[in-house]
Amino acid sequence: MIGLTYRQSEVLAAIKEYIARVGFPPTMTELARLIGCSSPNAAADHVKALRRKGYISSATGAARGIAVVDSGNDLDAISVVKSLLEGGDNAKERAVAWLQLQGVEL
């Protein structure tokens, strides 16, 4: 899977948390509220990016059509550590975002 930006990690975490709490995915309007966007279109852009990177799938036209794809967290951890060691772009932000996705409070 392709790495996420810090904001994309926040959006993915919001989707996962909503599903865990409510039992089904949010609509674009609900997701926009969750992530602090003023427009459902902005939330839809984040969903498209997450889908393109392989972290979620979504059903076109379905109000609650978002599904989180199993991400293989071990491989993500390896890429995060490699990025930190190599001093990659946004390495620290990626590491923090990944830790937050794992439920670690910083």
Rank of each mutant, 00 (worst) to 15 (best):
I2D: 07
G3P: 01
G3S: 01
G3M: 02
T5D: 13
Y6Q: 00
R7W: 02
R7I: 00
R7L: 04
Q8I: 03
Q8R: 08
Q8H: 13
E10L: 13
E10C: 05
V11A: 11
A13W: 02
A14K: 06
A14L: 07
A14Q: 08
I15M: 04
I15W: 06
K16N: 14
E17D: 15
Y18R: 12
I19Q: 12
I19G: 11
A20Y: 11
R21C: 03
R21Q: 14
V22M: 08
F24T: 07
P25A: 01
P26C: 08
M28K: 10
L31M: 04
R33M: 10
C37D: 02
S38M: 08
S38W: 06
S38D: 09
S39E: 11
P40H: 14
P40G: 05
N41H: 12
A42C: 07
A42L: 08
A42E: 13
A44P: 02
H46M: 03
V47Q: 08
V47A: 15
V47L: 10
K48F: 10
A49V: 11
L50F: 02
R51S: 15
K53E: 05
G54K: 05
G54T: 07
G54H: 08
Y55W: 12
I56V: 15
S57V: 08
A59M: 03
T60Y: 14
G61R: 02
G61I: 02
G61D: 01
G61Q: 01
G61N: 01
A63L: 15
R64D: 09
R64L: 06
R64T: 08
G65R: 07
G65A: 10
G65W: 11
G65P: 10
I66T: 09
A67Y: 05
V68F: 06
V69I: 14
V69Q: 08
S71T: 06
N73H: 11
N73F: 12
D76G: 07
A77E: 14
A77M: 13
A77G: 14
A77H: 03
S79H: 12
S79G: 00
S79P: 00
S79K: 14
V80Y: 08
V80M: 11
K82C: 09
K82E: 12
K82D: 12
L84M: 12
L84R: 10
L85T: 10
L85W: 12
G87V: 06
G88V: 05
D89R: 08
N90G: 00
N90R: 00
A91G: 13
A91I: 08
K92R: 12
E93V: 04
E93N: 15
R94P: 03
A95E: 00
V96P: 02
A97L: 04
A97G: 15
W98E: 11
W98N: 01
Q102I: 02
V104C: 10
V104I: 15
E105T: 04
E105C: 03
E105G: 00
L106E: 01
L106F: 10
L106V: 08
